[in-house]
C-alpha cells in the first residue's frame, strides 16, 4: 500500500524481548531442575501425612538420606541393596561421619550419639518390621536423630 510496487519490504521484528523472555524461562527451569536432582529417589512413593512439616529454610548439611523401596530394600546411589549390603553401607556411613567429625576436631566417642540426622524416605507399602530394622541398625551405629519423610498433602 504505502511502498512502491517494485520496492522490497523488509520486515525485521525485534527479537530481543522474545529472547529475553526465553532466557528467563530457561533460567527458571534450570533452577528447578537442580532442586529435583537432589538425593530423592522417584521410585519411592511416600505416605501422606497432613501434619508432616516441610523443612524450613536450608536443610541441615549433616544428614544421611535413606531411600527404602516397597520391598524394603535400601536404594543407594540408584542401586538397590540387599539387607547385608545395606547394613554394611550403614556401618561405612557411620564410620565416615565419625572420621569427618575427627577431621573437624569434633570427635565423638564410640558410645556417644552422632549429630547426623538420618532421613527416612520409605515407600508407603513397606512393612513396619523393615523400617524398624533400619532404625535399630542406625541406632546401633550411633545415630539418634531421625526424620521420617511424608507427603504434606494429598497432592
Amino acid at each position: 500500500m504505502g511502498g512502491s510496487a517494485s520496492g522490497e519490504i523488509k520486515a525485521e521484528p525485534n527479537m530481543t524481548p522474545l529472547l529475553d523472555v526465553v532466557f528467563q524461562l530457561i533460567t527458571f527451569f534450570m533452577m528447578v531442575f537442580k532442586i529435583s536432582g537432589e538425593n530423592y529417589d522417584q521410585r519411592v512413593r511416600l505416605p501422606v501425612a497432613g501434619s508432616a512439616r516441610p523443612v524450613e529454610g536450608k536443610p541441615a548439611e549433616d544428614r544421611l538420606i535413606l531411600n527404602i523401596d516397597g520391598k524394603g530394600q535400601l536404594l543407594w546411589n540408584g542401586e538397590s541393596l540387599d539387607i547385608d549390603r545395606a547394613m554394611k553401607e550403614l556401618r561405612t556411613q557411620s564410620q565416615l561421619v565419625r572420621l569427618n567429625l575427627k577431621i573437624q576436631k569434633k570427635e565423638v566417642a564410640d558410645g556417644e550419639p552422632l549429630p547426623t540426622t538420618v532421613v527416612f524416605r520409605a515407600d508407603k507399602n513397606v512393612p513396619f518390621t523393615q523400617i524398624y530394622r533400619y532404625i535399630t541398625a542406625c541406632q546401633t551405629q550411633g545415630f539418634v536423630k531421625f526424620a521420617l519423610k511424608a507427603m504434606s498433602g494429598e497432592g
Binding site: 501425612a49 508432616a52 516441610p54 523443612v55 532404625i135 539418634v144 526424620a147 511424608a150
Partner: peptide, 11 residues
Amino acid sequence: TEGQFSMNLLP
C-alpha cells in the same frame, strides 16, 4: 512438597 517428622530415638 515433602514434610517430615523429626524425632530423637536413642538405642
